[in-house]
Design a protein around this nucleic acid. Structure first.
Length: 450
RNA sequence: CGGGCUAUAGCGCAGUCUGGUAGCGCGUCCGUCUGGGGGACGGGAGGUCGUAGGUUCGAAUCCUGCUAGCCCGACCA
């Protein structure tokens, strides 16, 4: 993309409404614009990041064997009355009436609808196990939205639902989700720690939240520092293997890690003092096993091998896709701006032409741009005639992890400069070498999409 | 929903107390000079001062209602 053809309304000054760093940078980098309280338009740069995150979530869900689908944002209240949640959910649920005076709502989650789909079409244990998921906009009418997309009213969420014959199978689904979530967050450059949590209005016994450590996190968290040394890494997991998935669960949840909701001082004190940590975290996902809560209430049963109808065991699993954009920034920035992890960066590399209009510099940039694009990379070429300082400041603000700087001075010696945003380290090399380096850096991070 | 506050140009703000020609910085547009970390000079565009009503010869300014947004709290992914 050429910057001169892009829509990137960056701000030099910080809008007054933004309190936390991710909100400030998202506004300043021209990623979002508030439409009303807790509701945002996603401008091209922000939308690009959102889509990258979404694609990673899709890829990892597909890898785990889950089926993508899509359910409506507006739902009839009837199903929610059936589960009893129409009354339980309270003011957080946005309710409305259609022209026939029927009660409707904007979905905050979709257990009822998916259960309705299930019970209408699945009747045999032979069709199990089944896990379907969607990435869809949700609405929760928060009393006080704040922190930009971190705590908006409208938000993009991946929500998945598993249906299993037995509790044992459903717990495997739970473990499988835990594994796939660990993998998903790592690909986004995040360390998200599974912590024992409270189930809230979803209900159920087993639940873990995934938290990213950040000073601005909304939850206080207590954990054994050993847990931050765990890496999922590049291991090859067979998602159909109960043993393998369970082993990962054991590895990642055996040490103390809880949010303030479930914190147990006595248990925490059993952790050696040197390893006890109290910090803050941002919740970026949660997994639940809730057994037959919805299947019993809504009659979602299958016939087992013995011919008897039994309610299915279920769980649901969420990833806060739009919230992750903010969480990643909270976890990865400096005073000049965002620092995108390679896996989610909107553009792979910025090309800064230090002297637009200089024939040699222009030509070198065009060649770089074409060669990078040909390799499937996404460069953002600043071809404007702004001065160098301004170009650098914009690149730093929008957080591209790598930058190639091209100027007449370097070109005299046949070199350009490759700079790492995170470390600030620069290296001079030929344009060809820079292209190869960037291609090599991003080889493990090319999101294939769907 | 309780408490506090704000609304003037795209963004950040002054002007309101004490009523009388709507301002500043940044951004933006045009031109010239510049050119390796937000450059200089010159010239422009852009605001029914959130909204409705009231007081007044006259309202951004005083009064009343409404709306929107922000902060603290409770709540929440």
């Amino acid at each position: 993309m050429r910057l001169s053809r892009y829509f990137l309304p960056v701000l030099k000054e910080t809008p007054a409404e933004a309190q936390i760093v991710s909100h400030r940078f998202m506004l300043r980098a021209g990623m979002i614009k508030q439409a009303s309280a807790g509701i945002y338009s996603w401008l091209p740069l922000g939308f690009k990041v959102l889509r990258k995150i979404e694609n990673i979530v899709h890829e990892e869900q597909l890898r785990a064997g889950h089926l993508p689908m899509l359910m409506p944002t507006l739902q009839s209240a009837d199903l929610w009355r059936e589960s009893g949640r129409y009354d339980d959910y309270g003011q957080e649920m946005l309710r409305m009436k259609d022209r026939h005076d029927r009660d409707m709502l904007f979905t905050p989650t979709a257990e009822e609808l998916i259960t309705d789909i299930f019970r209408g079409h699945v009747s045999s244990y032979r069709d199990l196990p089944l896990t379907m998921y969607q990435i869809q906009w949700k609405f929760r009418d928060e009393i006080r939205p704040r922190f930009g997309v971190m705590r908006g009213r409208e938000f993009l969420m991946k929500d998945g639902y598993n249906f299993d014959l037995t509790k044992e199978d459903a717990l495997h689904a739970y473990n499988r989700h835990l594994v796939s979530y660990l993998r998903t967050y790592e690909r986004m450059g995040l360390q998200a720690i599974p912590m024992r949590a409270d189930s809230g209005p979803i209900g159920g016994d087993d639940t873990h939240e995934f938290l990213v450590l950040a000073e601005t996190g909304e939850s206080e968290v207590f954990y054994d520092s050993e847990i931050t040394e765990l890496k999922f890494g590049d291991r090859d997991i067979d998602y159909t293997s109960k043993e393998q998935c369970h082993a990962v669960l054991e590895e990642f949840t055996s040490r103390y890690a809880r949010t303030d909701e479930t914190h147990d001082e006595a248990l925490f004190n059993q952790v050696p003092e040197a390893r006890r940590r109290v910090a803050r975290g941002i919740e970026v996902g949660q997994i639940f096993y809730f057994g037959t809560k919805y299947s019993e209430a809504m009659g979602a049963t299958v016939q087992g091998p013995d011919g008897k109808a039994v309610p299915v065991h279920m769980g649901s699993h969420g990833i806060g896709v739009s919230r992750l954009v903010g969480a990643i920034i909270e976890a990865s920035h400096d005073e000049r701006g965002i620092i995108w992890p390679e896996g989610v960066t909107p553009f792979h590399v910025g090309i800064v032409n230090l002297k637009t209009g200089d024939a040699e510099a222009d030509a070198a940039c065009e060649t770089l741009y074409a060669a990078l694009t040909a390799k499937g990379l996404e460069p953002l070429y600043d071809d404007t005639d702004e001065r160098a300082g301004g170009k650098f400041a914009t690149m730093d603000l929008i957080g591209l992890p790598w930058r190639i700087t091209v100027g007449p001075r370097g070109l005299k010696n046949g070199v350009v400069e490759l700079t790492c945003r995170r470390t600030g380290e620069s290296e001079e090399m030929s344009p060809e070498a820079a292209i190869d380096r960037v291609a090599q850096i991003f080889a493990p991070h090319m999101v294939r999409g769907l």
